[in-house]
């Protein structure tokens, strides 16, 4: 290699995209989580777009305020109250997750564990609520191929969308539990970085984010 080529090579290496640097200002782990989140958003986006297509091409669409009226231990009908409560719980668990990340960056292991625990609790309650919701819906006669309120596409998209979201909540809970155990055992402290907590946090906030849109488009609209 002649001298000019060496200089040229050096110039490339020193540039932002030459390698050995972080052009996005984050570690590769965090960037990969963001890429995963974008791809997952595409999956949910496809679900919701298909649901929109089903809905505008169906002659009639059931009114969710008449379908989702059950609330445990309440004898009268409470339209949408249960789903609103689930939304509230998930937003709160997102909040405690943010606090867990905040505490872990201050090397405050006790608080990080406490808030991770609260996040897991919130996620578990949400999942149990979803079990109740599914149980009720199925008990009322809904399945993937039909339901008493009209077009089968209504219950089919309900089961596909909320089921896929529930699966994400479940995987999130498993990841959160593993992370909490790692915090407890001092794994991140030994490694000298609590970034792992933040990355799991990103995923958990995304699960909350998806629910905001599922709640909006499936239940409220």
């Amino acid at each position: 290699m002649n001298h000019d080529a060496v200089l040229e090579q050096k110039k490339i290496m020193e540039s932002e995209w030459g390698g050995g640097k972080a052009p996005f200002g984050v570690s590769w782990r965090k960037y990969m989580m963001w890429i995963f989140i974008v791809s997952d958003a595409f999956t949910f986006g496809a679900f919701l777009a298909a649901y929109g297509l089903f809905r505008v091409t169906s002659e009639a669409w059931p009114n969710t305020y008449e379908v989702f009226t059950a609330f445990p231990l309440i004898p009268f009908e409470a339209p949408m109250l249960f789903v609103a409560m689930m939304t509230f719980i998930l937003i709160c668990s997102s909040f405690t997750m943010a606090l867990a990340v905040s505490a872990s960056y201050k090397n405050d292991r006790a608080n990080a564990l406490k808030f991770l625990g609260l996040t897991i609790l919130g996620g578990s309650i949400f999942l149990l609520c979803q079990v109740y919701e599914w149980y009720h819906f199925i008990h009322d006669g809904a399945s993937l191929t039909g339901n008493p309120w009209g077009t089968p596409l209504f219950s089919a998209s309900f089961f596909m969308i909320t089921g896929f979201h529930g699966l994400h909540v479940l995987s999130g809970l498993i990841l959160l539990t593993i992370t909490a155990l790692k915090v407890k055992r001092g794994f991140y402290e030994r490694r000298g970085s609590y970034e792992g907590v933040e990355i799991v946090g990103l995923y958990w906030h995304f699960v909350d984010l998806v629910w905001v849109f599922v709640f909006t488009f499936f239940y409220l609209l």
């Binding site: 052009p23 996005f24 984050v26 963001w34 984010l209 905001v212 909006t216």
Partner: peptide, 24 residues
């Protein structure tokens, strides 16, 4: 609009995207 506002708040503050590099 409410959904977009909620999503924006979650992504910007909870997911911290507002404080990341512009390329990200």
């Amino acid at each position: 609009l409410v959904a977009l506002m909620k999503g924006g708040l979650i992504v910007a503050y909870f997911m911290h995207l507002k404080f990341e590099k512009i390329s990200l």
